[in-house]
Amino acid sequence: MCRFICSHKKNVLMDPSEVEFLSEKETVTIIPNFSLDKIYLIGGDLGPFNPGLPVDVPVWLALNLKQRQKCRIVPPDWMDVVKLEQIRDQERKEETFAPIPSPYYMELTKLLLNHASDNIPKADEIRTLVKDIWDTRVAKLRLSADSFISLQEAHAKLDNLTLMEINTTRMFLLDSLNCMYKLRSNMQPGSGATRSQDY
């Protein structure tokens, strides 16, 4: 039995670094200090780049240029102390998950603050605020996962939940649900769901 359940893990698992990888496709505005013609990437055209003129690029490129000291990163609109305070307060007030400004808010905050904190005003406050928002949301997620299991629900709506948040609970929640399902279906004779090695 245990073997069966464990063997499913590898597929369902997503590494946090892979979620971060996805977040790097989001666009961010940079102010380059070099000039370069338009680049025709497979995923779309970028540029042209002119010194001092803002241009939108994917995060992976922005971070690379930043590391090579070729640009300044303009933080996204929502990465602002006042806005984040509002979001945090709303998140604490509401019982459900409040809408979030970016589906990758956690990953982007981490990436941008780690690599470009000199371009982001009040970086430390932002870090704390985003961590507060994250903690509040993950606590809600744990509560709802708990009630989902104890009420033995078969469907849950998870609007506004981000991929990284889902990822924190994915393995534990899905494995628990699968375990409980197997325990239940094994009690009913004749259910074909768990034949083979389980016996």
């Binding site: 069966f4 929640l173 649900l177 399902y181 034949r195 083979s196 090695q197």
Partner: peptide, 14 residues
């Protein structure tokens, strides 16, 4: 076919 478990289609997914 009996020795190797089948994929569990009753798994939950997001």
């Amino acid at each position: 076919l009996k020795a190797v478990p089948e994929p569990c289609l009753d798994s939950f997914v997001f």
